[in-house]
C-alpha cells in the first residue's frame, strides 16, 4: 500500500516537493513556536538592565573577532559547571542578546560570569598578549584592539537597529549613544554622569584600558567582558549554589 502510494508521488516533481516540505516542516514548528507562547521559557527579571552603547560596541567586537569560537557563555545545569563557573545560566540573561553567544566549544573557559572576576588591567594585559599572564594559553593576542580607536559614529544606528529587533532602548539613549560610549570610559569627563543617569547607578564608569586620552576598541571589549553575568541577579535568586550575586562596582 505505502509502496504503491510512493510510486505515485515519485512520478510528479511538484507532488514530491510538497511532500518534502510537509515532512520537513513539522519538527521546527513544534519546537520553535511554543518557545514564544510558553511563559516560563524566559524567566522574569525586573532588575534586568540593557547593554550600554560601549558594552554593545564591545559585544560587537566579541562577535567580530569570533571569541565565541573558543568561549561559551552558557553554564549548563550540571554540578561541575555550577561549581566551576557559578549558577547555571538562565534564558532571561540573554533575553536582549541578538544574536545569543552561547557557543558550542570550550577551547577556553566559559565566560558567562567572568564580569569583575579579574581587573581591567589584567583583561588588557591578557588580551594584548595572553601568554604574558597565562603562559599555558593558546588564545590569540589582540594587541591591535588597544591601538584601534573605537568607531562611535554608527553607535546610534546600532542602538536603533537593536530597538527594531525588540531591545527597549529609548530615544534619549539612541540620541546620546556616542557621548555615552565616550563618557563611560572617561570618568572625569562631562559625559560620564549621563551614562549612569540613563543606564542606572550600577553602570561601571572607568577607564577600562587604563588610558583616558583615547576611546579604543580595547575599552569597549573590556567594558563588555566586565559586565558578563551582571545584567541581572536572577540566576542567584533561585538556586542552592553558594555563589553570591556580585556587588556593584563603585
Amino acid at each position: 500500500m505505502a509502496e504503491l502510494f510512493h510510486r505515485k508521488i515519485e512520478r510528479t516533481a511538484i507532488g514530491f516537493v510538497l511532500a518534502i516540505i510537509a515532512a520537513a516542516s513539522v519538527g521546527g514548528i513544534v519546537e520553535i513556536a511554543p518557545l514564544f507562547t510558553i511563559h516560563q521559557t524566559v524567566e522574569d527579571a525586573p532588575d534586568m538592565r540593557l547593554y550600554t552603547p560601549l558594552e554593545l560596541a564591545g559585544r560587537d567586537i566579541y562577535v567580530r573577532e569570533g571569541c565565541y569560537a573558543c568561549h561559551s557563555q552558557m553554564i549548563r545545569t550540571l554540578r561541575d559547571e555550577v561549581e566551576r563557573y557559578g549558577p547555571y545560566s538562565l534564558a532571561v540573561e540573554s533575553k536582549y542578546d541578538h544574536p545569543m553567544l552561547w557557543g558550542s566549544k570550550r577551547t577556553g573557559p566559559d565566560l558567562a560570569r567572568v564580569g569583575d572576576k579579574y581587573s581591567d588591567l589584567w583583561q588588557v594585559a591578557h588580551l594584548t598578549n595572553p601568554r604574558s599572564v597565562v603562559p599555558e594559553s593558546n588564545m590569540p593576542s589582540y594587541a591591535f584592539l588597544a591601538r584601534t580607536p573605537l568607531q562611535t559614529d554608527d553607535l546610534r544606528l546600532r542602538l536603533a537597529a537593536q530597538r527594531d529587533v525588540g531591545v527597549p532602548y529609548t530615544d534619549d539613549m539612541i540620541r546620546n549613544a556616542a557621548q555615552d560610549a565616550y563618557g563611560q570610559a572617561t570618568p572625569d569627563s562631562d559625559y560620564a554622569s549621563g551614562v549612569t543617569q540613563r543606564y542606572g547607578e550600577a553602570t561601571q564608569v572607568r577607564a577600562f584600558d587604563g588610558v583616558t586620552t583615547e576611546l579604543t576598541e580595547m575599552d569597549a571589549l573590556v567594558a563588555y567582558l566586565q559586565i558578563l553575568g551582571r545584567l541581572t541577579d536572577a540566576a542567584y535568586k533561585h538556586t542552592a549554589a553558594p555563589q553570591k550575586p556580585p556587588e556593584p562596582v563603585k
Binding site: 519546537e31 518557545l35 541578538h98 544574536p99 552561547w102 537597529a161
Partner: peptide, 25 residues
C-alpha cells in the same frame, strides 16, 4: 535588521533562547 543600508553589520531578529533554538535547528 541591518544597521543601515551602507553597513555590513546587522542584528538578527531572534534573541536569546529562541535564537539558540532557531540557530541549532
Amino acid at each position: 535588521v541591518p544597521i543601515s543600508w551602507g553597513s555590513a553589520k546587522s542584528y538578527t531578529v531572534w534573541a536569546g533562547v529562541q535564537d539558540a533554538m532557531v540557530q541549532w535547528w
